[in-house]
Amino acid sequence: MSRTRNAWVLPTSVVLALLLSLVPLPPMVQALRPYWLALVLAYWVIEEPERVGLGFVFIMGLIADISFGGLLGEQALRLVVMAFILQRFRARLRFFPLSQQALAIGGLLLNDRIVASAIHFAVGEPMLPWTYWWAPLIGLLLWPPLFVLLDGLRLGRRS
């Protein structure tokens, strides 16, 4: 099976994750928006570590920072912290059932909120409202279908 057969899936999924993060939502639902870029990059760090490492994740974080107009380097730092933890435990995570993987990803997304809060506190930015703490739960619920979708696209049809 050729590994480069579906090489388009990685850049397409990252661009779609960025676009989904930029779609305007009503204020009531905005806080529940999952961190699409983190979910997609988590998949690629777990499944294709030779293609998606800390450098790639950092660059995608900087692109996200520029796209969203936030504090430059905030998302880059948050994503690198997540990717580092994923790389450290990748061998174990790959063999977890999908439900346990979802719990681990939910924990990483919760850790991401803690890192974001620490960054906001350190630079004097206003703290995120309490409703933003629900987004990791949404990410946890989205992990299994997202994993299955990306895995199917990456692997393609098996003969």
Rank of each mutant, 00 (worst) to 15 (best):
V29I: 15
F84P: 06
P145H: 04
V148P: 00
L25V: 02
P126Y: 03
R157E: 13
I138T: 09
P145V: 07
Y43N: 02
R88W: 04
R158H: 02
E48M: 06
L37A: 04
A102Y: 04
E48I: 03
V29F: 00
A38L: 11
R94T: 08
F68E: 14
I66M: 11
W143K: 03
G70E: 09
P24C: 10
V148E: 07
F68L: 15
V80S: 13
V23K: 02
D151I: 05
E74W: 00
P136M: 03
P129F: 02
G124R: 02
F68Y: 10
L153H: 03
P97K: 06
Y35F: 09
L93I: 15
P27F: 01
P26L: 04
G106N: 08
L141S: 10
I138L: 15
R92E: 14
R157K: 13
R3D: 14
A91H: 13
I105L: 09
L137Q: 01
P11I: 03
L32K: 02
E74V: 00
L54A: 06
I114G: 14
L54P: 00
L86Y: 12
Q100I: 07
M60A: 14
L54W: 05
P126W: 07
H120P: 03
F147H: 15
L41C: 02
Y43W: 11
P129Y: 06
V80M: 11
I63T: 05
L93P: 08
A83K: 01
L18N: 05
